[in-house]
């Protein structure tokens, strides 16, 4: 049986206490919400904290609250299943809720949290392997080694951004609240990630993501399309979140976020320009998708060929725009 290594398990009584404990232990500790990403990685020796600080039991992180500006604040430890079953959230943010519903399998969504999914580790099939496997190959820079196995010439790790909900949250221009030793700050989800599969998050190691703030959806209609091999369990091979504002059939505004095609989700909304002021038709959509998919850089570190994944990014963009329009 694949087992966890030894660690100490801490169960702080509050977020403040958790933040304090985290700053004490520094890099020797990891916070854990649902554990569905952290625990398999610990079993495979990819992450080796001495201390695991559990957050899942903290009621203050488990609330979905309507806020006065018309948006919602979702606690980091709200499970993906709870998001999926919230009719209010589904009405306001169909793309985000769709993304949550497409994460892994039903049982995993009962444990996996929205905060955990925003922080989900980047993935790579040279990295998501056991200690013995990685030792046999030679380790990679993301853990225990010094080169990128999929792109040996790369100075940075090219593991793949694999959160389904991050692009959906970005498409709504959501923010997250981080709590650290210096107090609390609110940052856009879009600024949480960077183009480095190893250091994929910009938040400081001693900061805890405590909530996701989704702004008033207003006229924004949204969608999320996930490309994967199977209808369940799998991580995205490409993911596209779209938010649209329409006046009748005419597009007023459009945001497009693509993910799983590089180390971070990418805002490619600039490519939607030809749609603005126009009706959605095949020709424009094809042009938009081709432009939007340009920054996609899939590599041979996930399922199926990277050429196909790149092509599917375009298809998924087209589909996501159409679906967002249908929601309208």
């Amino acid at each position: 049986m694949l087992r966890l290594p030894r660690f100490s398990y801490l169960r702080p009584g509050s977020v403040a206490e958790a933040a304090q404990v985290l700053s004490e232990y520094g890099s020797r500790a990891m916070v854990m919400a649902g554990g569905t990403d952290l625990l398999p990685k610990m079993k495979r020796g990819q992450i080796e904290p001495e201390v695991v600080i559990s957050l899942g039991h903290l009621d203050e992180l488990r609330q979905i609250r309507a806020v006065s500006d018309g948006g919602f604040e979702i606690g980091a430890c709200v499970t993906l299943a709870e998001v999926v079953s919230s009719s209010e959230l589904r009405a306001a943010y169909p793309g985000y809720v769709r993304a949550a519903a497409l994460v892994s399998s039903p049982a995993l969504r009962n444990a996996g949290t929205i905060g955990g999914n925003l922080c989900v580790d980047t993935r790579c099939n040279y990295y998501d392997e056991s200690y013995e496997w990685r030792k046999a190959l030679g380790f990679c820079m993301k853990k225990d080694g010094d080169i990128c196995r999929v792109a040996p010439a790369s100075a940075t790790c090219r593991a793949i951004a694999s959160s389904d909900t991050a692009p959906a949250a970005m498409s709504m221009q959501a923010t997250v609240v981080l709590v650290g030793p210096k107090g609390m700050r609110e940052v856009p989800v879009a600024s949480l990630y960077q183009d480095d599969g190893q250091f994929y998050m910009t938040k400081a190691a001693d900061e805890i993501l405590v909530s996701l703030r989704m702004p008033d959806p207003g006229r924004w209609k949204s969608s999320y399309v996930k490309v994967r091999n199977r209808g369940s369990i799998d991580f995205p091979l490409a993911g596209v979140a779209v938010a649209l504002q329409l006046s009748g059939p005419v597009v007023d505004d459009c945001r497009i976020i693509i993910t799983a095609v590089g180390p971070q989700p990418l805002d490619v909304s600039h490519a939607a320009q030809p749609l603005l002021g126009n009706r959605i038709d095949d020709t424009i959509l094809e042009e938009v998708a081709a432009e939007a998919a340009k920054p996609a850089r899939p590599l041979d570190n996930a399922d199926l060929s990277y050429v196909w994944r790149k092509r599917m990014t375009r298809r998924a963009i087209e589909q996501a725009v159409r679906e967002a329009a249908e929601v309208a």
Binding site: W133, L137, N229, G231, S232
Partner: peptide, 27 residues
């Protein structure tokens, strides 16, 4: 449609139930 015992660099490419694909109920 999806199963393959694939090798790369002398190693099994996907020795896990996540990465070695087999049908779920949905397929």
């Amino acid at each position: 449609m999806m199963e393959g015992q694939l090798y790369r660099n002398g190693l099994h490419k996907q020795p896990s139930m996540l990465d070695y694909k087999s049908f779920t109920f949905l397929e």
